[in-house]
Design a protein around this nucleic acid. Structure first.
Lengths: 284, 284
DNA sequence: TTGAAAGCGCTAACAC
DNA sequence: GTGTTAGCGCTTTCAA
């Protein structure tokens, strides 16, 4: 007769379903679907439901999401920028794993990508190929630009370690998208920076930049080499195939769920580290 | 003191949060993130939570998901293949919108992509370019291969309408992935079918096939042209850029949520139709 | 076998 | 302002 038992009344008496909140920046950035895939399968193995929230990397949107998440899920895996949001969720007391954030408080579990190692590989590779002037296309959406541990600062450190006179002038801000990468490439070319190589915050920005460079008559990799930073499936398919730091994003998601499960059994906050691997392709 | 109010007890007394279940085949197929994006934003506008489920297009997995969904969400938007699963959800009485399924019972709301029109455009385009022998790479995972209304049968009809002697022999099954497209392209080449053009079930298969063709020395589009079928962002980025039927997948998702909302107010089952648009690029 | 009742954890209303 | 209680809709237990 169209009658449906109430989920709530039911959950009240039985053990009730665990809902894991997964907060990502943008499902259209191919980085996230891979993480989502890992989270979905690991959650499914435990019989958990996954609720997805997207912040668009917009700070006020992120706060709204954090506030919602706090009273609608039982545990949380999140990409979050604002320390206030991180604290809000942590203080809610639910199991919480923060991903890819360099400012993680020690009391919060985390999943980190070891870009320190990654950047050394990437910059080292470019220097080996003879590049002495490398532009870094940073994500301008991050409020912590240049802080210790960010790709921005790790790039500068790696470059310095290789003996390059790198400074803030080598870093160009880019919106986190193909178009953002393209616009930033315009900046690199128009300001006469004279880059023979471009290293981007992620593959999306790198691909956008590489295409724009080609459109403007720069030949890749002869005139300018390109290196990305997350190893999207996509990076293998573009022309030329992109050199990138391959990150096991699915594992990042799986490990986060695993950590949530550990927190539920009363384990201490821990950190999982994913080490990227440099994959050299035709773009460099 | 680490105390957390129970979601269930809370939902029991207050109005409680609406959770929309979104069932997709595979978050790693870039088709779905675009749909998810539309669903997320439309759901968010209504203050709904979205729980994601992935079937992997595996029939037994799909049944498990359908069974779960039925008692853990309040409404459902789904890509589903098995009629039994469709009926299960429909009979649960929750608002339900079925996407991209040619066998939708009339009592179920739906979101359909008008591939009849799309196929005519795509095949017409190839015929105009002088192609007389076109291989169709179908998704072999669909249990309804060749049924009325599928891309398979719409392809054959469109080809026939253009005066080509098309029959089942023109259709090659492919797994729904880049590798699947590559393997199917091997079939097309190895069986000596003699295609001068390949039209695929979707862009993923088309891109996989196109790359394999190139790797085997076929030049694109001179020796063989390629056309995809869903207009992924990716299709613009590959080399050569892929001719495809551009489908507004975000709109498909948004419209589905809108229909769910309508069903909640007691509206009749309806169908939304998305009309694809042929985008001609260098692959043909 | 069938039916009544207790109680899950919260909120809101009401009485003190 | 502070404290008490009814009741949300189920499931499970226990009684008839």
């Amino acid at each position: 007769m169209g009658y449906r038992p109430s989920r709530f009344a039911r959950g009240m008496v039985g053990p009730g379903l665990t809902t894991l909140g997964l907060v990502i920046a943008d499902v259209l950035n191919p980085f996230f679907p891979e993480v989502v895939s890992g989270v979905l399968s690991a959650a499914d193995e435990r019989g958990w439901q996954v609720a997805i929230y997207s912040t668009g990397s917009a700070l006020e949107r992120e706060s709204a999401v954090a506030a919602t998440v706090v009273d609608h899920v039982d545990a949380c895996v999140a990409f979050l920028l604002d320390p206030a949001d991180i604290e809000l969720i942590q203080r809610s007391g639910m199991p919480f794993v923060l991903l890819d954030n360099e400012h993680r408080p020690p009391a919060v579990s985390g999943g980190r990508i070891d870009f320190a190692t990654g950047m050394r590989q990437a910059v080292g590779h470019l220097v080996e190929r003879g590049h002495r002037r490398i532009a870094m296309l940073d994500d301008r959406g991050r409020p912590d630009a240049g802080d210790r541990g960010t790709r921005h600062s790790l790039f500068l450190r790696a470059a310095t370690e290789c003996g390059l006179p790198a400074d803030g002038g080598w870093v160009f801000p880019a919106a986190n998208s193909l178009d953002g990468g393209a616009a930033a490439m315009d900046d690199v070319l128009d300001t006469g920076f004279g880059a023979t190589a471009v290293l981007a915050y992620n593959d999306l920005i790198a691909i956008g930049a590489m295409r724009r460079a080609r459109d403007r008559g720069v030949s890749v990799p002869e005139d300018c080499a390109f290196v990305g930073c997350d190893g999207l499936t996509l990076s293998r398919l573009v022309d030329p195939p992109l050199t990138t730091l391959l990150v096991d994003k699915e594992l990042l998601g799986r490990a986060a769920v695993q950590q949530v499960a550990a927190l539920m059994t009363g384990a201490q906050a821990r950190e999982t580290v994913i080490v990227p691997r440099l994959v050299v392709r035709a773009s460099s």
